[in-house]
Design a protein around this nucleic acid. Structure first.
Lengths: 141, 141
DNA sequence: CGATAATCGTTAGTGCGACTAACGCAGACG
DNA sequence: CGTCTGCGTTAGTCGCACTAACGATTATCG
């Protein structure tokens, strides 16, 4: 690797993120899921039934991509898509029992991945990392 | 955003990396370049003329992708591609004067981006961030 | 020496995530 | 009523990571 590049924070950041992402992706693949699935399931669990547009805002996934994610989740019975009678432009996406079970599985897999990635750091360092990253992320809302 | 997700280190990491990447990409676009171009130019500047396979190792870019990058750099006269007489399987890629000038430009743009991204952190915090990220990245070589 | 293996550049193609454009439909509002 | 906005959907782009396979060349080993 190139010394000059490897010491730059932006480079390090994307390298670390790549490794972390890879580990998380591997873990979730165990349960036949990707990050987007987890994001949607977690959001539904946290905030209850929602329209696709709401899911888009809350997860950061583009509303054009939400379609496929909900299709897949619905195909696996982890989520239900129904038209909203109050506003027929919207769909109401609801977490099913199976979806809740899947979410629990994914949460477990994520925790493992999380721990793997952070293995080189002690608890204090982990907290500090979160603090520093949060500071970087915050300004851009 | 979803609280439950947003506090997880892996999520934070990829969020921070995304913002950082975006900022760097924007900066480099100013000089009509992408990260891969900078990586190759910087490597050539640091280690001198090299084969494409060597560039691949040193930058982490796949050798199948190096082709296009060298094509583009060569098309802009920032790099020269010549067959290696000593081993006719290889090409020798050499940085040109124009390439060296471009590299200086990109270095400047990168420094700006770097500083933008790290703006919320003081020097001590920046150093600590580098330390923590390095610890995470190291184990996976 | 000659057969086999390894290396190099190249082409083609996959998968994922971020993102844009455009459309039809349904409500909101003047 | 007509216009404007929000919603779901389709289709497509771009960058990056990554795989597979091929022709040409060189290294290695029996």
């Amino acid at each position: 690797m190139v010394r000059r590049l490897s010491s730059l924070p932006t480079r390090l950041l994307s390298l670390a993120a790549m490794q972390s992402d890879r580990r998380v992706t591997e873990g979730l693949a165990t349960a036949d899921a990707r990050k987007w699935h987890l994001a949607v399931l977690a959001t539904l669990d946290e905030s209850g039934p929602a329209s696709q547009a709401q899911l888009s805002e809350r997860t950061g996934i583009f509303r054009s991509d939400i379609v496929a994610v909900v299709n897949e989740l619905a195909g696996r019975g982890q989520v239900e898509r129904a038209p909203n009678p109050a506003d027929r432009r919207q769909n109401v996406i609801t977490l099913t029992a199976r979806g809740r079970r899947q979410l629990a599985t994914l949460d477990g897999l994520l925790a493992e991945a999380e721990d793997d990635v952070l293995a080189p750091l002690n608890p204090a360092e982990r907290a500090e990392l979160v603090r520093l990253l949060t500071a970087i992320v915050r300004p851009h809302e």
